[in-house]
Every structure is written in structure tokens, then in C-alpha cells.
Design a binder for these strands. Structure first.
Length: 848
RNA sequence: GGGCGAGUGGCGAAAUGGCAGACGCGCCGGCCUUAGGAGCCGGUGUCACGUGAGUGACGUGAGGGUUCGACCCCCUCCUCGCCCACCA
């Protein structure tokens, strides 16, 4: 038991890690001075968490590499701000309340307490002094304030609309309804439609601006998803009129949106959404029963019917006609559920020859199909079109279109619109898929909407000085997901701020995505009392330099945050119009079964156990090492031992450079043919080359290769352990570089070794995390010789060690003299010799 | 049906036009040990040949193309994952 190795104690994370965490806390090392303008500011933000009560490996996977980025930036002299907080409103608290008869606030509080402790065990450089908890009235008061401001600015409004309604969770946003089966994103229940008066935010006003990503360093897939979600499409709005008949005089306008005005002559019928306002008026008495039955069924059965997108089309004729403005022809009006009330004008002109859905509909109901667009030079199809011709070629021409015959389709688009426009029957139009943001929730555990309803004055916004409207402390749950605010007279009954008469409060609360749409502004001044944001700090510190989080928020949180920033800028609250300059989406860590981690699947990985066994540094490093950060993947702790071993070896290198390993026959002696000077050159060279690549890896968030490079350096140093150069100047420099490079990723063990190193040198303690990132010594990093692969016709036939800096002619002569090359040439003369990649490789090309 | 992403050893992966498999796990052998589930050293893509140092062929989901040269670029297809889905 008295081997060399046991002379030093083993690394014991369980004592070292908490000690340094406490020390950092004591010193306030990560409390950012937001007023300090002597250094460049770096706002580092990671998505705040819902306080579910348990931190799992996924949380570590996002946060610890983000922390490494912050520590890396600090070592470059940046003033880094890295806050944390909790997204504390939301349904699980209410579900727990209903189930366990515990107040949502208590449940949330105790979860937060637990998660704070778990978060601290990461050893991350969070600035806890700026923590934000959204269910605190000191936070949600400002949600209410912003709502009132948006109301004044015309950005918030109330409207009755059919909304997606979940029996458990109340109203859902469009994007909270998932999949073809239209299930609730939280509880999975089937979603129905219901008419309710709701509050909306006018995100559509910013549709075009939200399509502009210039100046943003965001992942391409997120930009594409947002672009598709906004769904801008350019076309024309065209005015059809209803034709007179026995039951109504006609002349009503029927507006349709189309992206293909060049197909207008092929419009052989019209289709209205069942909810279209003119349906009742146009339907003659003898058709009423059937039409009303269809409208009723499409409302009731929409969810079930739309399970399948390729089910047969359904619809009924109204029994009225419309007049096609281009040729005055009467065409029948139908209603069908494939036309959506909420998109465009809720009515279409059907051109079966050139639209797949219209084609299917016309085929099903025997409606005429008139070909009006044809590929250049093509003949009329015999026996009619077999399918809709929908492709758009520049060379397509218009046919069967009166005086437009022979026009190329793209020109015809404009010609038709211009013509109808001059007659007041059409205009260019743009529509978007994106809808205004429905923010009302029929829930208790959220921000109360600060308006009252008064018999005399109608909808009255509360004055700013009456904020916050607090959630009542006592809640009467009756075991359902229903909103208990509606049964609370003390909350409900109030007086009208305008007339002083009796009034009732709004009982809906705000979507929790409101909270997360501006929280990073509040981090900068969480206790600021004169408004939601401290303008001076916000102007200095935003936009956020780096945001990290999951891609699942692509069209929700990340889009709402952009909208909020623009809306707040237009209200004069902030200057910048974009929240996050650079965005990185790390991948998802899945359960060992490859499924998303969830309690119900029982595949949640508890990091606390791993931390207890290996220490936080090992867990952090392992998560960075397991693969590219943006990839994620199924979780498996297999291999974590390798990372633990690496840190153990770094520990040994730092504290016991002269030890001799019993199992290593070469231990203590320099490699064959190497003297001490050569060994020191090799060590310095490797250290500085590692520094160069590791620096680049940190910049690019390539943490897996960063760790690999540090392992290589550690392996190299281990080779020299116990030799004459161990502990010498080159060794010492390399070891210092190793610790500095490792510090952002493994902050505790490096801090411990750094402190011992300073003590051993008689220097005063300073944290490794306040050291400067070292500079590469290019001379030391340079190599004198390199191995040159020699290819013949692209296949490697030989390798030769050559001096760096030989001319191509010299290399060529040397290479052609190699016996293996001569053999491979087989007496033939090279056609040419390619020196590739700046001398990295030579390829000798033989023809034939 | 549409969009995005991914397919490389037994496993996590590296290499983004220039030596395929760095680094790590696992496995095999050795050292040290009362012991080894600790630590250290070495080996490890597949196949064939060779006692051996080694030599040769094959090899990045499939097929084609561009190139002196392709895991990487282009085309066609297959498989898997995520997101969206009648958007006129």
C-alpha cells in the first residue's frame, strides 16, 4: 500500500466542490456589477425553468455548457451577466393543488426551494441576486402594466372567436394544440371548439417585421420554422358578387383571396367556409335544412373529421350563384369544411383544374373542370385533365381565358389583377397563416387581467396605480380544472374606477408565455419600481449576446419574445427591436429508451445521484463530452468513468508530477532518442497547439472535441510523468494551460488545483476563474517536421517525414524517389503531381 | 402530404473537399497486488495472406454523378427522428 501513487490523496469532489461553491458565494464572484462599463458587457441567458420540483439531466445538459461559455467569456475580460429565474405560473401547480389540496403557491415555492439547491450543485456562475420568480406580484404586476400599455397602443383587444378548448386546461393557443388528433399539448385531451370573448395581442401587425432576421445569428432551422409559421403569401383579393335569384336580389360582395389570379377563368364554383357570414342570407328556404345540418356537423365533428387529411371531401351547395368578374358567368356557391373561416377571407374561388383540393371536390360532386393554364407547347389533354396541373413554370401559358390566351402565366397574374383593379374588383393582397395571439386563460394560477366590466362603462382598464391585481390567497377548488376565480365573490365584485358603480373583475388570467416574453429585461432590475424595465440598464445590456435553450420553443416563446420586444419598443419602453442576438439550440437528452424524459415514462435520470457519486465537474464534463451539443440523444451514463478518470489524472499530474507508475515499463525514462530539450519542446508544442484548437472549440461550442483535446494533452503529460522534465518549466507551463483551459468546464477541481499551485509558489490566492485566458505562443506551437501522405491516383501508397517549408519541387523530387512510389508507378511517367491543402498531402496522377 | 435534421467500428463519436475511425466506453493481454469492481502500460474497423515486423483488399444507409481526390458537393432512392399538416 505504499506505492508512489498513494502518496497523494485522491480527488474527493464531495468535500472540494461544496467548499468552493460556498467560497464563490461569499466573495460574490458572480454578482455582476451592471454599472461597470470598463469592460465589454456579455449578457448570457439560458431559458428559465418551470419549477416542476426536479432537476433532471436535461437541465444540466443546457445549463452547464452555457456556464462554461460564461466562464470562458469572463476569462477574456468580459463583464458577464448570467441570471436565473423560474417560470412559476402554469398548470402543473393547479393540478397538484386539485389533487393534493395544497395551494399552488405553496407547491411552487417548495419546488423552487428544492431546485435552487439542485441548481447550486452545478457550480454554475449564476447571479442569484437578480433572480426572477414570475408568480411573485412584484413580477406579474408588470405583466398587467404591459397589458394596459398594449391596450392603449391598440395592440391588445377583445374579440369573440371560436377557440380551441380543452376540457381540463381551458383555452389553448393554436400552437398548444398538437398533431392531427388535435390534442392538448399539456394533458393530451381532445380539443374542441368553443365561442368565447377573449383577449388577443396583435402579433399579426408585426408579421412582416418578424420575417426579417437580418443581424441575428440564429440557427437556420429556427428561422425557417418561424418563417413558415408566419406563412406570408402574396396574391390578390378578388371581388365576386352574388347573382340575383328568386329568393334574394344578389349584388352582395363575396371576397376571395387567391395566389393564382391567372387561373380566374377556370373558377367554376365558389366555396365558403361553413361559418361564413353570408351563408344564412344566401341560402334559399328549400335548402336551409341541409345547409344548417352541414354547418352544425362541421362545427361538431371538425376534430374527428379532420383526423385524416386525405379523407373524402364533403360539402353542400347553397342553392345560390356568384358571378365571376372576368367573364360574367354564373357559378354555384358551395360550403365545405376544407375552407377555413380563419384564413384569407373565409371564401375561395375554386379552380379545379389547377388546385388539388378543388379538383378532388369537383370530381366528387361532378362540377365542371376547365383547363386555363398549360405547359408551353403542350396540347390539350385528351378526355380532360386526369389531375390538377398545379406546378408553376415560367413558361406556362394561359388558355381558355378570353383575351389573355397565350399570355405567359406570371405576366397574366399581374395583367388580370391590373385589369380588375381598374374596375374596382380586385387588388393585390397579402395574407398570413399566423393569427393574433390569444392570451386569455380560464385558469387561476396566472396573472389576473387588469380590467373590470361595468354595466355603465363597459370594459374598463384599471388605472396603473391600482396594480397589481393580486390573486386571492384562498382558493376554492372543487376538484375540476375549472377556474375558481369565478366563484370568489371577494375577487369578483369590485367598483368601476370610472363611475364608482358596481363592477365585476375579469376572471381570465394571462397565458404564461406572456411572462417569458420579457423576463430577461426584468433580470436587469428585478426590484425596479418605476416600471417593468429600467431603461438605462436595458439600453446598456440588451440585446442578449447569447441565448441557449431547446428548439421546441421555435414558434412559441422565441417568436413571442421577438414580438414583445418590438411592441415594447413601439411603446417607448426599450430601444432595441430584437431580444436575442445569438441563439443556440442544444439537443434534447432523451431517456435511455430514446423517448422524451418524463415522470410518467419512468425514464427520468436523476443527476443528484451522479453528482454524489462522481462530483459535479465529472457530470458537467461528461455531458459536454458525449457528443455535439446541438445533437442531444438518448442518455446513457456508460463512459462517465472515462471522464472521471481524466479528471483524476489531471489531479495526479498537478500534485504528483514525479511519481512512477508500477504498471508502466517505460515510466521515468524519456522516449527513445529524445533528450530533455527535445522533450520540453514537445511538451510546449503540444500545449500551445492544444490551446489553439481548444480556443476555437469554445468559440464554436464544440465542447466534445474540446474535452478530447484536453484528454490528449493530459495523456501526453502522463507519458512524461516521473521523467527528468516532469515538474520542469515546460511541464509547468503545460500544466497551467491545461488547468486554465479546463477551468470553464470543470470549475471546482481546477480551482482547487490552482489554489494549491499558488500556495506552493508562495503566491497569494486568486480564483482561477478571474485569470486571463492564455495566449498561444505561435513559435512554440510550430512544428519542424510533418508526416506527408503520398497518394498515387488518390490512394495512399506511402508516408514520409519531411521538414516543414520545403518547396514543391523539393517535395516532388523526394516523393518520386521513394521505393514504394516507384513501384506503384510501375515505370509510367506521372501525368501531374498535386500538392494539396497547402502541403498537407501529395497526389501523383497517372492517366489511363 | 410538406418542412427540417440525421444515418460512419460492438457503443458515444471525430474528420465538412485532402491520411476515415481522433478522444472516450467496452473488450483482449500485461504490470502492480493478499485481492481487484482501484491505478498504470499495450492492443483493438472487417477480411485475406504471413511464424513475424508486416503486406494487400474492402470499408462512412443504397445507387449514380462531379473531381486528381468525396463521410463531406450534386441527383435518385431507402431508413429513422422532430415539427407542421385541407393555408386557397
Amino acid at each position: 500500500m505504499t506505492t508512489e501513487r498513494t502518496r497523494i490523496e485522491r480527488y474527493d469532489p464531495a468535500t472540494v466542490e461544496p467548499r468552493w461553491q460556498a467560497r464563490w458565494d461569499e466573495l460574490g464572484l458572480y454578482r455582476t456589477d451592471l454599472e461597470d462599463s470598463s469592460r465589454p458587457r456579455f449578457y448570457l441567458l439560458t431559458m428559465y425553468d418551470y419549477p416542476s420540483g426536479d432537476l433532471h439531466v436535461g437541465h444540466w445538459y443546457v445549463k452547464t455548457p452555457t456556464d462554461a461559455v460564461g466562464r470562458y467569456r469572463r476569462m477574456h475580460g468580459d463583464n458577464v451577466f448570467f441570471p436565473v429565474g423560474f417560470d412559476a405560473f402554469g398548470l402543473p401547480a393547479e393540478n397538484a393543488a386539485i389533487k393534493n389540496r395544497i395551494h399552488p403557491a405553496r407547491w411552487t415555492e417548495s419546488n423552487i426551494t428544492k431546485m435552487r439547491r439542485q441548481l447550486r450543485s452545478m457550480g454554475a456562475s449564476f447571479d442569484w441576486s437578480s433572480e426572477v420568480v414570475t408568480c411573485d406580484p412584484a413580477y406579474y404586476r408588470w405583466n398587467q402594466w404591459l397589458f394596459l400599455r398594449f391596450l392603449e397602443a391598440g395592440l391588445a383587444y377583445r374579440a369573440t372567436a371560436p377557440v380551441d378548448w380543452c376540457p381540463n386546461d381551458g383555452t389553448l393557443a393554436r400552437e398548444q394544440v398538437e398533431g392531427v388528433e388535435r390534442r392538448c399539448w399539456r394533458c393530451g385531451a381532445k380539443v374542441e371548439k368553443r365561442d368565447l370573448a377573449q383577449w388577443f395581442l396583435r402579433i399579426t401587425k408585426y408579421a412582416d417585421e418578424l420575417l426579417d432576421f437580418s443581424g441575428l445569428d440564429w440557427p437556420e432551422p429556427i428561422r425557417i420554422m418561424q418563417t413558415n409559421w408566419i406563412g406570408r403569401s402574396e396574391g390578390a383579393e378578388i371581388v365576386f358578387t352574388t347573382a340575383p335569384d328568386a329568393h334574394q336580389p344578389g349584388g352582395d360582395e363575396l371576397r376571395v383571396f387567391t395566389t393564382r389570379p391567372d387561373t380566374l377563368f377556370g373558377a367554376t364554383f365558389m366555396v365558403l367556409a361553413p361559418e361564413h357570414p353570408l351563408v344564412t342570407r344566401l341560402t334559399p328556404p328549400d335548402r336551409r335544412a341541409e345547409v344548417e345540418a352541414y354547418v352544425a356537423s362541421s362545427r361538431a365533428e371538425t376534430e374527428i373529421e379532420r383526423l385524416s387529411t386525405d379523407r373524402e371531401k364533403t360539402g353542400v351547395p347553397l342553392g345560390a350563384d356568384a358571378i365571376n368578374p372576368v367573364n360574367g358567368e354564373r357559378i354555384p356557391i358551395w360550403i365545405a369544411d376544407y375552407v377555413l373561416a380563419g384564413y384569407g377571407t373565409g371564401a375561395i374561388m375554386a379552380v379545379p383544374a389547377h388546385d388539388e383540393r378543388d379538383f378532388a371536390f369537383a370530381t366528387r360532386f361532378g362540377l365542371p373542370i376547365v383547363e386555363v393554364i398549360r405547359a408551353a407547347g403542350a396540347a390539350a389533354p385528351e378526355g380532360g385533365l386526369a389531375a390538377a396541373y398545379v406546378s408553376k413554370a415560367e413558361t406556362d401559358v394561359m388558355v381558355n381565358s378570353g383575351r389573355f390566351d397565350g399570355q405567359p402565366a406570371p405576366a397574366g397574374f399581374r395583367a388580370v389583377v391590373e385589369w380588375l383593379r381598374s374596375e374596382g374588383k380586385a387588388d393585390y393582397a397579402v395574407t398570413y397563416r399566423i393569427r393574433d395571439w390569444l392570451i386569455s386563460r380560464q385558469r387561476y394560477w396566472g396573472t389576473p387581467i387588469p380590467v373590470v366590466y361595468c354595466d355603465a362603462d363597459g370594459i374598463v382598464p384599471l388605472p396603473y396605480d391600482q396594480l397589481p391585481v393580486r390573486l386571492p390567497e384562498t382558493v376554492d377548488y372543487q376538484g375540476s380544472g375549472d377556474n375558481p376565480l369565478r366563484r370568489d365573490p371577494a375577487f369578483l365584485n369590485t367598483t368601476c374606477p370610472r363611475c364608482g358603480g358596481p363592477a365585476t373583475r375579469e376572471t381570465d388570467t394571462l397565458d404564461t408565455f406572456i411572462d417569458s416574453s420579457w423576463y430577461w429585461f426584468r433580470y436587469l432590475a428585478p426590484r425596479f419600481d418605476d416600471g417593468p424595465v429600467d431603461r438605462a440598464k436595458v439600453d446598456r445590456w440588451t440585446p442578449v449576446n447569447q441565448y441557449t435553450g431547446g428548439a421546441e420553443h421555435a414558434v412559441m416563446h422565441l417568436l413571442y419574445s421577438r414580438f414583445f420586444t418590438k411592441a415594447m419598443a413601439d411603446c417607448g419602453l426599450v430601444s432595441e427591436r430584437e431580444p436575442f442576438r445569438r441563439l443556440f439550440n442544444q439537443g434534447q437528452v432523451l431517456g435511455a429508451d430514446g423517448e422524451r424524459m418524463s415522470k410518467s415514462r419512468g425514464n427520468v435520470q436523476d443527476p443528484d445521484k451522479l453528482v454524489a457519486q462522481y462530483g459535479a465537474d465529472t457530470v458537467r464534463l461528461f455531458l459536454m463530452f458525449m457528443g455535439p451539443w446541438d445533437q442531444g440523444g438518448p442518455w446513457s451514463p456508460t463512459g462517465i468513468g472515462g471522464v472521471a478518470r481524466f479528471l483524476g489524472r489531471a489531479w495526479t499530474l498537478a500534485l504528483d508530477p514525479h511519481g512512477i507508475e508500477p504498471g508502466d515499463p517505460t515510466s521515468g525514462s524519456l522516449p527513445d532518442g529524445e533528450d530533455a530539450a527535445a522533450a520540453e519542446r514537445a511538451i510546449r508544442g503540444a500545449a500551445h497547439r492544444t490551446l489553439a484548437t481548444v480556443t476555437a472549440d469554445y468559440e464554436a461550442f464544440h465542447f466534445n472535441t474540446m474535452v478530447a483535446r484536453l484528454m490528449e494533452l493530459s495523456n501526453l503529460l502522463f507519458r512524461y510523468r516521473g521523467t527528468s522534465v516532469a515538474g520542469g518549466p515546460a511541464w509547468d507551463e503545460a500544466l497551467a494551460l491545461l488547468l486554465l483551459m479546463l477551468a470553464p468546464a470543470a470549475p471546482h477541481v481546477t480551482e482547487e488545483l490552482w489554489s494549491r499551485r499558488l500556495a506552493a509558489r508562495g503566491e497569494a490566492w486568486r480564483s482561477i476563474h478571474t485569470e486571463r485566458w492564455p495566449a498561444v505562443d505561435a513559435a512554440a506551437a510550430a512544428v519542424e517536421t510533418r508526416e506527408l501522405p503520398i497518394q498515387v491516383n488518390g490512394k495512399v501508397r506511402d508516408r514520409v517525414e519531411i521538414a516543414v517549408g520545403l518547396s514543391e519541387a523539393q517535395v516532388e523530387a523526394l516523393v518520386l524517389a521513394r521505393p514504394k512510389v516507384v513501384a506503384a508507378l510501375d515505370g509510367k511517367t506521372p501525368d501531374r503531381v498535386i500538392h494539396a491543402g497547402g502541403g498537407r498531402l501529395v497526389n501523383i496522377v497517372l492517366r489511363g
